[in-house]
Nucleic acid binder design. Sequence first.
DNA 1: TTGTACGCGTTATCAT
DNA 2: ATGATAACGCGTACAA
Lengths: 345, 345
Amino acid sequence: MFEPTIKDIAKLCGVGVSTVSRAINNHPDINPETKEKILQTIEEYGYVPNNSARNLKRADAKAIAVLVKGMSNLFFANMIEIIEGECKKKHYSMELSYLEADEDEVDMAQKLIKEKRLRGIIFLGGIFSHSEEKLKKLSVPFVFSTVGAIPENISKSLYSNICVDDRRESKRMVDYLIGLGHRKIAILVAEAEEEHSIGRLRLEGYYDALRDSDIEINPRLVCHTSQKMIPFSMNSGYMTAKKLLAGGEEFTALYAVADTLAIGAARALYEAGRIVPRDVSVSGYDGIELANYVTPSLTTIRQPIERMARDTARLLFDIISGKRQHQHIVYEAELLERESTRAIV
Amino acid sequence: MFEPTIKDIAKLCGVGVSTVSRAINNHPDINPETKEKILQTIEEYGYVPNNSARNLKRADAKAIAVLVKGMSNLFFANMIEIIEGECKKKHYSMELSYLEADEDEVDMAQKLIKEKRLRGIIFLGGIFSHSEEKLKKLSVPFVFSTVGAIPENISKSLYSNICVDDRRESKRMVDYLIGLGHRKIAILVAEAEEEHSIGRLRLEGYYDALRDSDIEINPRLVCHTSQKMIPFSMNSGYMTAKKLLAGGEEFTALYAVADTLAIGAARALYEAGRIVPRDVSVSGYDGIELANYVTPSLTTIRQPIERMARDTARLLFDIISGKRQHQHIVYEAELLERESTRAIV
DNA sequence: TTGTACGCGTTATCAT
DNA sequence: ATGATAACGCGTACAA
């Protein structure tokens, strides 16, 4: 198979490489006829420009990257689409990259900045676990969006952050359950070991709520999902709830720190003959589409992700263009009261 | 911010660029002390090699790409992980790229082949809608996996294909429903217009089954999801089922060509006061994790995706290394009989 | 073991 | 309007 380069096309057309380049990149200074002929030859021989060479040469790319931590997370799909839309408006291209839990997002960001000549980065999800020094190595502005809490000792002038207060929203949910008369509230929590993880923050919110209402914390109702399982899988919620039930500890409500966990748990309750919400109230966190379609539909916390995604992108563009400084914005989430919870009679 | 290149590092260390290159790429011919010093300088100045330059230079990358059509599709997450595992075993790196419905996967493949010096491609999902001529432009071997039917007129020696027979498996499901005594079977179908789409194939299977059992096809029970909605969303299933119910046509079973649609439809039935499976049997297709956790759990068709993913990767590697020729393998799916379907009394 | 110099494919600058 | 040529940052043959 013949893989022509720009030189081959130039030779084929009897023109110089710069003319071909002009044809490809829609430069003005070119004779329409020449252009036509070149484009035709390109078509004929199946010439595809080499992006590596382009990126190497090009000073300026009008591109940003979105780095998503934890794929298999449907939660972000929406946000990414919205961010992509904002990019299109600004005539920016968007590089999307999914990272495994063990990959270092800042390292990846550095690579991409060089490789793609990026002008900015959006970090989506995950936990923040980098030193200030490391962060300083990033040569373009970046915005964290929906990532776990960022340590206080990192200078706020270095980055932007868009989030909800996970701890506060989690407390809101537990307050709601307490308001319904529940006092024996079990919690299903994942990844709570790590300092600034989502799981940990949501667990803290649970503690806050109980403390505020003078309810003693019962460690037997704090259920950690097994490390061996896929972190936020339904199966993980299912198995953990099974264990809770087997333990025999009484509870009238079960709050899972993710909708997926809650749905798995609801199944375990069903199999144990406990009817939701008659016997047990169940609630989740995230507000995924699914939560509205299971039966009974799931009471949950929903972040305003559309707005957050939009604002994330806009903020980044404003910082790139120098219109604004770094911002740290905390959004209010919403408690969606649905069928899976109800007051104790 | 200072962005050092390999030259800067070389100068800083008082060595030549090739020595730095050797240090980076673990070449044997280098003095351990020199290497140590270089690596230290690299660390200190935060040098990150430019991947574009690397790719440009490198003849050979030991890399493949996986092109996924339709993100927001949790279905593939599993497969990708397995493929990634196989890549690691072979010491290949894997480039992952998600495409929107309107993007051309073959064009993208061509770009990536040049940019990343790929040795092979895996196409995951989507519909096949390319000419043989276009396919021939790809200079590396490729395997289709779980994509819709590929037109007969394309030479089989050009590509590999790993799939299940969607039409046959769909028929299997409808046969099963008929076996339970159902004769008024509604179907929820998406994307059925396009010739070789998944939706179309599954609809054909439905027709096949009815025909085999001499059940007359009732067009009012064939429900197409609206074009305006997100193709396989639960909401789409929900709305379409609502419309079916509003139409007043009688049915005792509802088969949706995707689990997500089925779950949305189940919700609509619930809200209409029709109990599943007592009043209506519901079944889906795909076998996503969720199907096992909703209540009642969903009867569905499950492709052996783990095995398919593994075999897809292995086949590609074997073709790359010349061990095997292109293959066309059809896997058998499995009908998972669960709580959402039952015999007519 | 190390350094020099060339070329990968492209774009941009400068002549023409 | 067009062509020659110098970068871009890196890997590698070849020379030392």
